[in-house]
């Protein structure tokens, strides 16, 4: 299933990130060139595709690996958008899949960033190596997100993500998408981002079945990620569950805010537009 239809893509391409302009105080205005990597500071490698400028091929890498990679450089003042997906197994849940909603959110932000000639770094918690995108990487970003799987087990090691904050922290915006069911590593990321001066936005995705389950009768509840519970579910049990979930989510909200990040709650069944609106409210996106 494609992440977006053509109409949504068109609407997304009209948007720009507001964070960069704010950070740069509007002195530079729009970037002069969409050519990512024309600056002085090395940013990242990416595989060569047909049409790329052969002058930017990193021949040293070719000599070592035998494959063509382009050498990308970041321009000074260019905004770096860090897209981090929580690929915990609990993300693959719900009639309206939370994982699909998470990838759509990241894709939307990534596209908007790329359309604004910003530098985009995509990472997921279970994979330590991030992937960089410049202004021409929109198609590749969408393809990568489209094919991105969840991991088999929740990830506690977030060193790969935190490593992205060590360089150019103040030029970066972190967009973290998760269901926050394993919240401690995620809150750690957000706290590290704040220390590194990275603006952070946490998007919490929940499925309707999680917030308001319709279970009843004798049930053996097999939690994704482990743990069996036997219960005869009736309205009293459901009420207790809803109270517990609400309490938990309120705790998440407080903790995210305490970590200095904006917090957006998203239903996995929601279309992408409300998220865009919320991102606008958070000052991440401008029209």
């Amino acid at each position: 299933m494609p992440l977006f239809d053509e109409a949504t893509l068109t609407r997304l391409r009209r948007l720009r990130l507001a964070a960069g302009r704010v950070q740069r105080g509007g002195a530079r205005g729009e970037r002069l060139s969409k050519q990512f990597g024309a600056g002085q500071e090395f940013g990242a490698h990416r595989p060569y595709t047909q049409g790329d400028d052969l002058r930017r091929v990193d021949w040293n890498v070719y000599g070592r690996l035998g494959q063509l990679f382009l050498k990308l450089f970041e321009q000074p003042g260019q905004l770096r958008v860090l897209l981090v997906a929580d690929d915990a197994p609990t993300m693959s849940f719900g009639e309206h899949d939370k994982w699909l909603a998470a990838r759509r959110a990241l894709a939307a932000v990534g596209m908007i960033a790329l359309e604004g000639s910003e530098h985009v770094v995509l990472s997921r918690l279970g994979v330590p190596t991030p992937v960089n995108f410049d202004g021409t990487g929109e198609a590749r970003l969408l393809q990568l997100l489209d094919e991105m799987p969840v991991s088999a087990a929740p990830t506690e090691n977030t060193a790969g993500v935190r490593g992205m904050f060590e360089r150019r922290g103040r030029d970066s915006v972190l967009v973290l998408v998760s269901d926050f069911q394993n919240r401690e590593p995620l809150l750690g990321i957000l706290r590290d981002a704040r220390r590194a001066g990275v603006r952070a936005v946490a998007i919490s995705i929940a499925a309707a079945e999680e917030l308001n389950p319709t279970l009843e009768g004798f049930s053996r509840l097999q939690a994704i990620g482990g743990g069996d519970t036997k219960l005869r579910i009736d309205e009293r049990v459901l009420q207790a569950y809803r109270e517990e979930v609400q309490h938990y989510r309120e705790g998440i909200t407080r903790a995210v805010h305490a970590a200095g990040a904006a917090f957006i709650e998203l239903d996995s069944a929601d279309p992408i537009e409300p998220l865009i609106v919320d991102l606008m409210r958070a000052g991440v996106i401008g029209a």
Partner: peptide, 24 residues
């Protein structure tokens, strides 16, 4: 048969365990 527990796939495993402790 009526008391047989049917398998249900859920998230928030820890929350369900807390609920079970609370109601059972």
């Amino acid at each position: 048969f009526a008391r047989r527990y049917r398998k249900r796939r859920v998230t928030y495993g820890l929350i369900w365990q807390r609920v079970a402790k609370r109601v059972l």
